[in-house]
Amino acid sequence: MNSISELQDFIINGHKHYMPHISIDAAIFGYHDHQLKILLSGYKALGGYCLPGGYIKRTETLDKAANRIVAESTSLTDLYLKQYKTFGDPDRIKWSELDFEKFSKEIGLPYIKDSWLIDQTISVGYYALTDFSLVTPKAGLLSDSCDWFNIDEIPPLLYDHDQMVKDALHTLRTQLYYYPIAEKLLPAKFTLTEIHAVYETLLGKKLDIRNFPKKLVFLGLIKKLNEKRNIGPHRAPFLYKFDLKKYTKALETGTTLT
């Protein structure tokens, strides 16, 4: 969490720089070595976790704000980032008067009635994908912590963030069949077993190791190199790499991987 003076200025004057009642919440998924995790922000004052998020500067586009918020949480830029849903039901309250009063008391700030942070808030959901071993998580302006959690061991989340995670994961897994979004999770040169493991882990299901990588080769998204990796006695699989021209086109237009 930032200094008391920074927080106080944000709470009192933030509406001058940020758009009230609309925020961005990012489901940041991390893959590494057959593990899938999600990044969560902790709020001691509220007794729980949320997706990393923030408000949109009056000078920003939605995508620019999302990239900034994700970069602030991960210390990385240029991650794969996609808007997936807007959450704006009439009974959706991000901050209630009671929450805000409790939060102010916990962090040692005077309670400001009718703050711009209170009332119904629309949230624009984005998901991002990265290698979690490269991330240096950083708490946001209002949060106390930022940590990775295994996708199957997520603690109960505040507000409607449980549903946000479910929707983000569903969108990610659906789009994996149409967009080759796993490129940044692999080294520049990789084996078919490695790319197969990435897709299996992200999808949370078994894939036919004989056919799925061959589909990527058939579509021309990856190409075989005249190089091998020695991984043990009598084991030296060929290496592959993405065809970046075809990969970029597939990201833009989509292609069926099933």
Score class of each variant (00 low, 15 high):
Glu106Thr: 03
Leu176Trp: 00
Ile12Phe: 05
Val124Glu: 05
Ala71Gly: 09
Asp89Met: 07
Asn13Cys: 10
Tyr240Ala: 05
Ile11Ala: 05
Tyr55Lys: 06
Gly48His: 02
Gly108Cys: 05
Pro90Phe: 03
Thr130Met: 12
Leu244Val: 11
Ile151Asp: 02
Ser75Cys: 14
Asp89Ile: 01
Ile93Phe: 05
Cys50Arg: 11
Ile118Arg: 01
Leu225His: 07
Tyr31Ile: 04
Thr171Lys: 07
Ile222Met: 10
Tyr199Ser: 10
Ile93Asn: 02
Ala27Trp: 01
Ser5Ala: 15
His34Ser: 14
Ala26Gly: 13
Lys16Ala: 07
Asp131Ser: 12
Asn150Ser: 14
Asp208Cys: 05
Leu46Trp: 02
Thr61Ala: 05
Thr121Cys: 09
Pro155Arg: 10
Gln83Val: 02
Ser73Ile: 06
Thr256Tyr: 13
Val135Asp: 12
Glu106Trp: 08
Ala197Lys: 10
Asp167Met: 03
Lys223Glu: 15
Lys215Arg: 14
Leu98Val: 09
Glu194Phe: 06
Phe190Ile: 12
Thr248Asn: 11
Thr86Tyr: 00
His17Tyr: 07
Ile118Glu: 01
His34Trp: 00
Pro213Glu: 08
Leu129Tyr: 08
Trp116Phe: 05
Glu200Cys: 13
Asp144Lys: 04
Tyr159Trp: 01
His32Glu: 14
Lys246Pro: 12
Ile222Glu: 03
Ile69Pro: 06
Phe190Arg: 04
Lys102Cys: 08
Lys94Gly: 01
Tyr179His: 15
Glu183Val: 10
Leu172Trp: 08
Leu62Ser: 02
Gly30Gln: 04
Ala197Ile: 06
Phe132Gly: 01
His32Cys: 13
Val217Leu: 15
Pro233Tyr: 14
Ala250Met: 12
Ile231Asp: 11
Ser133Tyr: 14
Asp9Glu: 15
Leu46Met: 11
Phe242Asn: 07
Glu72Asn: 15
Leu98Gly: 00
Tyr159Ala: 03
Leu157Met: 12
Lys246Met: 14
Glu227Val: 07
Leu134Asn: 04
Lys245Arg: 09
Leu109Ser: 03
Ile181Tyr: 02
Leu202Ser: 09
Gln163Pro: 00
Leu176Glu: 00
Thr59Gln: 11
Thr258Ile: 13
Ser75Tyr: 02
Lys184Asp: 13
Gly48Met: 02
Asn67Phe: 04
Ile222His: 07
Asp119Val: 01
Ala26Asp: 11
Thr171Arg: 05
Ile231Trp: 08
Thr121Tyr: 01
Lys166Met: 08
Phe87Ala: 05
Tyr49Ser: 05
Asp9Ile: 04
Leu36Glu: 11
Tyr84Phe: 15
Thr61Ile: 06
Gln163His: 02
Leu225Thr: 01
His196Thr: 10
Asn226Ser: 14
Leu202Ile: 13
Trp95Cys: 04
Lys189Cys: 07
Asp89Pro: 01
Glu153Arg: 08
Thr74Cys: 13
Gly232Gln: 15
Lys206Arg: 09
Ser115Val: 01
Leu157Val: 00
Gly108His: 03
Thr258Leu: 15
Phe238Pro: 00
Phe100Ile: 02
Gly47Met: 06
Leu76Lys: 03
